[in-house]
Every structure is written in C-alpha cells, then in structure tokens.
Design a protein around this nucleic acid. Structure first.
Ligand SMILES: [Mn+2]
Ligand SMILES: [Mn+2]
Ligand SMILES: [Mn+2]
Ligand SMILES: [Mn+2]
Lengths: 217, 217
DNA sequence: TGAAATAATAAGGTCAGCCATAATATTTTT
DNA sequence: AAAAATATTATGGCTGACCTTATTATTTCA
C-alpha cells in the first residue's frame, strides 16, 4: 500500500477538483484556480488520467476516479487539520491559515497526520467551516446553499467559507463574514451586481463571485 | 527583504553544510550525505555560488557565505522547532522526528515558524540535543566532543546526537543512547573497530562512524 | 618523483511541470 | 446554418535538479 508519494502539483490538482464540488469540472476552471494555463492543465489531466486518478471526457470535463477521490480527501484532511492547529494553537490570523496549511499539507506523512488529528481531538470541521475527512477518506458533504442564491430579505447563518485566496479571505474576515455569523441579505443589485448585506449591524457590499464562496443555512 | 523562497533542494544543501560543522566542506561529503553524485553536488555548488550562498575553493571545499549561513540557520531553526513539536506534543517516536521535521521545515513560512516557537515556549534545544538558532540566526555552537574521540575508561554524558538517518537514530534509540544518558567506554577495538560501551548496565557495540555522531561531555 | 587516488569540469541526457503559438474540434449563439 | 466562442491537441521550448560517461587537474602516497 501507500502510494509512491504524489508530487505537490498532483495533490493540488486533486484537491482543487474536490474543492470545486461534485462533478465534471471544466479544465479551464481548474486552470484558473491553480493559476496555470488551460494547456498546462490539460497536459496534467492527461498524466493524472494515465495514473488512474481522473477521467477526462473531452468537452465535458474531468472527474475524480475513486482512487483520485480518496487521494483528494486525504489532502483535504491534512489541509484542514493544519488549519485547526494554526488557528487554535498557533493563533494565526483566520484569513491566512488556508495559505499556510496549503504548504504544510504536502509535507505531512500519514503518521504525522494521524498524530496531529489525535492531538487536536479529532476535529470534524476546520475554522473555515469545512468538514474534515476521516482517515479513510470518509466525508459528510457540507450541506447548505451558497449565499449567492439566497433570496433578498432572508436572514441566514454562515456555515462555511470556501474561498482559498488570502485576499478574499481577508476581505471576508474584515467584514465579519465568518462561520457562525448571522447576516441578512438587504439587496441584490441587478445585472449581477453586488449583494448588500447586514452583518453585525453594518452594511457590507459583496460581489457575487465572493458570495458564491459563502455557504449559508 | 525576505528571499524569493529557496527550493527544498537548496535548503537541504545549506542545512547539510551547516550540520557538517564549521568549515570547508568537501563536496564529496555533501554529496554522500544528500544521496547525490559528486557531479550533481558540484553543479549545485556552482548554482549556489552564483546566488552568493557559498564559496567554492577548488580542491579545498565549499564554505557558507554570511547569507548562506543565515539561511542555513533558519532551516535548522524550523527543523528543530518541528522536532520539538513532533516529539513533545504529537508523541512521535524519537528516531522518526528528524525525518518528519525534515519535510515540514521546507513548508513553513516565517510567520508560522515564529508562532510555533512561541507556542513551544521558545525552546533552546531540540530532542536530539542540538541548539535551536534564534530568529536572527544566532547560534550557540554545541560544545562537547564526539564519542569517537573519548578515551577508554571514561564515563561521559550524551549531550546530543547528530545523526539524521532514521535507521541510525533507531539503533541509538534502541540501545538507549539518547541525550542525557550517561555511559562508559569499556573498550575500543583496534583497526577502527567498534567501541564497546556500558549503557544502563548493558554492553553495547557501536561502530566508529556512529560514535562520531554522538556528542558527549 | 612518479603513480594512484581524488576532485573538478565538460558534454550530453532525462523528467516533471510549466510556457507560447498554432491548428483542430466541438459547442454555443446569433 | 453560419459565425463566434471555447476546448482540445500538436509542437516546440524552458528551467531545476538530477544522472552517466569521459577528460583533465590536483593532491596524496608509495
Ligand atoms: Mn497545497
Ligand atoms: Mn528537509
Ligand atoms: Mn548540459
Ligand atoms: Mn513536447
């Protein structure tokens, strides 16, 4: 057992696919998220296909195989355990934990992962509100809907924040849009314009692409 | 400030040089320690020379510049802080902490390093007995002599273990040769033969190359 | 001092993971 | 049904960090 160790690049592609939710992921979206040209992402998908980690249906998108899904879940497990450690124990700013954990995740042996999980008390969720897969890749998919699709006038509670870019996380942090926060959608501007929210008594403007990353219930 | 981020490979060469003690390091020894051919190590030394991290005097060896020394100290700082965390908090077996920390060290941002140091209570020494450089690269070089040079009949205390290979560390761990342990040199076989030690009332054979890694006082 | 050992250089390759540019193929829109 | 937009594939290149196989330089040892 124990795979011949995947490269950081491979792990990031798999994780990105898992983060981009259920299924067929357009290679262009992957490329965008990973900061790589579509041609490069295509090449990489060919390699991952040869390794049996993904299947690519041209013009439809790319899907994780079971093997790929397990590997991705394991990366997410490491990522989110480190997020817990960085936030709860090292007291690192919420907006930065994703980025720091994203480096550590690739440098973490299975034995360290499990010892870390035990040290942290086997948490089920990370500070961004996302579930932490168990050691076997088991996963309870996050319920809730995107704030983007929330009707004007509704009051909702933030369950998770799916953003990964530090500057986006920083903006959300500054505006108080964190897991557990209750907020109200005051207005949705036309033409895909921003939402206006009420958060902690303050009005906050939030573009739709950012709102998409905020999962509410 | 803040260097454009060094590759893992670069950091490992610098760290190996620092670990190989003070001065001109033979490129062949470096190559050996890093598991690389002498030709490859030579190439790498040329690159590091171009970056101002080392100076190479042909047929004499290679030396860290001040810039290289600082970078190396910083890698050692990260390495040894992680060793403390893995050993004291995650309860990972002593013989394995070097290897695991050796992965994490390259994935640790300065802000994480300092938060980790604070979390650990700014330890001055790692579980292998080596000093932890401070945030500015300050270093109190480890005193003591190698067990290899210890006269027969002497009783000494282990101050540090400089080995890095997991199997070597495992052997020393199994024989109880850990920092703080008191032991006596019973015999030194001729022709570079092994030492016979008394450790905790047991006789232990230790080859000279292993004995070299054991620093005593 | 000459031979043997060791170190350094030169030359040519490999491999992963990127890039750009250009040619096709497919889907979407008008 | 064309035209426009998007996706895919084909080529050719690049860089870092490795490797092997010479060749040359220096040091060490007999
Ligand atoms: Mn990552
Ligand atoms: Mn390392
Ligand atoms: Mn070449
Ligand atoms: Mn090619």
């Amino acid at each position: 057992m124990s795979l011949p160790h995947m490269s950081e690049s491979t792990e990031m592609y798999l994780k990105a696919m898992a983060e981009l939710g259920d299924h067929p992921v357009a290679i262009a979206r992957l490329a965008e998220r990973l900061g790589v040209t579509p041609v490069s992402a295509n090449e990489m998908m060919r390699r991952l296909g040869e390794q049996g980690l993904v299947t690519h249906t041209p013009y439809k998108g790319v899907t994780l195989t079971e093997k790929g899904r397990e590997a991705a879940a394991n990366v997410l497990r490491r990522q989110r355990l480190w997020e817990v450690f960085l936030f709860e124990h090292l007291k690192i700013e919420w907006a930065k934990i994703y980025e720091f954990a994203c480096s550590l995740e690739h440098a973490t042996a299975p034995e360290v992962t499990e010892a870390l999980a035990a040290f942290l008390g086997n948490p089920k969720v990370c500070p961004r509100g996302n579930p932490i897969p168990d050691a076997n890749g088991g996963f309870e998919p996050l319920g809730g809907r995107s704030l983007r699709e929330t009707a004007v006038g509704k009051t909702v509670r933030v369950r998770a924040v799916n953003a990964t870019a530090t500057d986006v996380l920083k903006y959300l942090q500054d505006k108080g849009i964190l897991p557990g926060q209750t907020l109200k959608v005051l207005e949705a501007a036309p033409l895909d314009g921003p939402l206006t929210l009420s958060v902690n008594g303050k009005e906050v403007a939030l573009g739709l692409s950012m709102a998409e990353f905020v999962i509410v219930e």
